[in-house]
């Protein structure tokens, strides 16, 4: 009988905001820790996560984010949201990002750049989407260390045969 194939989870990261970067990093790390193979495919805005110039500057925008409530800051304001007009003021995205980063850091969650390195060191395979790379005029030089290759959507489908796929 053939050897049983190891469980394999593939994440597709299509968004470049901080809150959309963390899920694949956290679940990918947990999967590796439990002996599961991990592949991550970065496409469209998700390329920001592995872009050297962007990785340390991923943000969270309060505008159009219905979960952004004053209560996040510990105020007893229930469901009262931060008004969209206020969220649109200059500096509000930077403020919201700094605020959330602090909350994340307090949980001993590493910064995105370090997280990527941990995943690579633990054996995750990271790939960039060829079509987006071409569209944005990027090369391997633009990415943090440890990215395996720039591959097509078809390559990704081939290399994830039998894997569980999570789209983020």
């Amino acid at each position: 009988m053939a050897e049983e194939k190891n469980r394999h989870i593939a994440f597709i990261c299509s968004k470049g905001s901080l809150d959309m970067a963390l899920p694949a990093l956290i679940m990918g790390w947990a999967a590796l820790g439990n002996g599961v193979d991990v592949t991550i495919f970065f496409t469209f805005w998700g390329l920001d996560i592995i872009n050297k110039k962007r990785v340390d500057h991923l943000e969270i925008a309060p505008v159009a984010n219905t979960s952004f409530k004053f209560s996040l800051m510990g105020l007893p304001t229930g469901n009262l949201g931060i008004p969209q007009l206020m969220g649109a003021l200059p500096g509000m995205t930077a403020f919201a990002t700094a605020f959330m980063k602090k909350k994340i850091e307090d949980l001993e969650v590493p910064p995105v750049r370090e997280y990527l390195q941990m995943l690579v060191d633990a054996g995750a395979k990271l790939y960039a989407c060829k079509m987006t790379v071409d569209m944005m005029g990027l090369t391997m030089e633009d990415f943090v260390e440890g990215i395996q290759d720039i591959v097509t959507a078809g390559d990704f489908i081939d290399m994830t045969e039998g894997a569980q796929i999570i789209f983020i």
Binding site: N6, A30, L32, G33, N34, G35, V36, Q117, M118, D121, A122, G123
Partner: peptide
């Protein structure tokens, strides 16, 4: 203990 080393010492998932 570096990540690479930890995963090499306890293959197929060091967490548990």
């Amino acid at each position: 203990v570096p990540t690479k080393e930890l995963f090499a010492l306890f293959p197929k998932g060091p967490a548990k």
